[in-house]
Write a protein that binds this DNA or RNA. Structure first.
Lengths: 229, 229
DNA sequence: ATATAGTGTGTAATTTTTACACTAAGTAAT
DNA sequence: ATTACTTAGTGTAAAAATTACACACTATAT
């Protein structure tokens, strides 16, 4: 095992699994690598933790550098550090996930020097990933599955105003199963974190649905408490 | 911020929160440091990850070196890496927890070169801890609180044969609240992971309780499924 | 024999979860 | 303006899970 990486006995990095929702599909952000190893492979965006950054700060910076986004709910979920996971040396990486609403207002501007390009790819049909990134992704998906059952993180994926059907759609995509419309609404409303607006959906060629907004105050009270789906 | 630690730009370590149960109290294993910084303070046992170890292997090794125990259920739960958390340089640490039955058969033999001594201290009345170890402990307790509600990890704290009252006691200690005896039994039995033995408790000066054993096969089936307390 | 201390058990009321189908409203095409 | 189309929005009954609650039993010690 050569030591090609710049002067390191070990390197500590952060990799991000960015889940994005465009109103239809669940996607993750991948970059196409421009360097060996795994040149031309798709990989999770990640980077080395800076000397004076906290881990969360570092994750935020990396997210920002890769997407131009700030203020995203983001959380570390697992450290991967098998000695053989990086062919060039010992790299321990801490995985973070983030949930992002795609499209609409702000354009993402992924900038990365070590990548040919960055793209949102549907999780339905992911390519082979570099390193152990498939494992990292799998664990991330598992994590948000668990998390979405207990905390209302689904809102992070939706625009500020959304319909109940859209919300349900997000749940179904993440949990990987159909939910009953009436029961879903009953339950989600019972949490009391939704605010019904006087506004209706626009631009649809059928009956427009009522828009809702997520009530952050009540959410804050609920946070920590266990809810379940 | 000086760089006193041996040739490192950054160090990656593992710290363990070892929860022990002696039949009465919940305790954690702490060491009394024999070196600066925080000489004479109590701290979580931990160590540097070795070059050719996976993280889990490293955690197991560290646990073994500190307690002589092997084969303990152990899980990483959070990485702590604030730049200022270690006064001598950048140390990123990955926290693991383990659950251990105390007393009884095998004596623990904590060996540590950098510690004056190691001791199981009741969590009721912990001393001030070195570094950010209080934070690490807090998060660990929070983690097992959450975990015990969804997975039967409580068994790890009990001897092979135990009474339902002891089991309930563990739940009460971790969750920090009283549970109803009849309801508790109804529920725990309904999971189907307990095997009632033909044996009774011995050496008590009152009616002896029936002993149970934890059924690992059924547990394996249950694992992954959500149960809740 | 009696006091003591913890074991072990059932039921009714309430709450939560599940399964399930039709009418209402708006748009688009004619 | 009628019709066809598409999704929105709503209730109820049955089943399951949760909660609250109290007393008789059994082994031991004196």
């Amino acid at each position: 095992m050569e030591q090609i990486l710049p002067h390191l006995d070990s390197v500590f990095s952060i990799d991000c699994v960015l889940f994005g929702f465009d109103g239809k599909e669940l996607k993750i952000l991948l970059i196409e690598r421009n360097e060996e190893p795994f040149k031309d492979w798709w990989a999770l965006p990640g980077n080395i933790v800076g000397a004076d950054e906290s881990l969360d700060q570092s994750a935020s910076r990396i997210l920002y550098e890769l997407t131009g986004l700030r203020g995203i709910y983001m959380e570390q979920y697992y450290a991967f550090g098998d000695p053989g996971r990086h062919p060039q040396g010992r790299v321990i990486t801490l995985a973070y996930y983030a949930l992002i609403r795609l499209g609409g207002d702000k354009e993402l501007r992924p900038i990365s020097t070590y990548a040919k390009r960055a793209n949102w790819l549907p999780i339905k049909d992911l390519p082979k990933l570099a390193f152990d990134h498939q494992k990292i992704y799998d664990k991330g998906l598992e994590k948000i599955k668990r998390r979405i059952k207990h905390q209302p993180i689904a809102f992070e994926l939706l625009p500020e105003k959304f319909t109940l059907t859209q919300l349900q759609h997000v749940y179904e995509l993440i949990l990987g199963k159909k939910l009953d419309k009436r029961n879903f609404r009953k339950k989600i409303v019972s949490f009391g974190v939704l605010k019904e607006l006087d506004e209706k959906q626009k631009g649809v060629s059928y009956r427009a649905a009522t828009l809702y907004r997520f009530d952050k105050r009540r959410y804050a009270k609920l946070f920590g408490k266990e809810i379940s789906f």
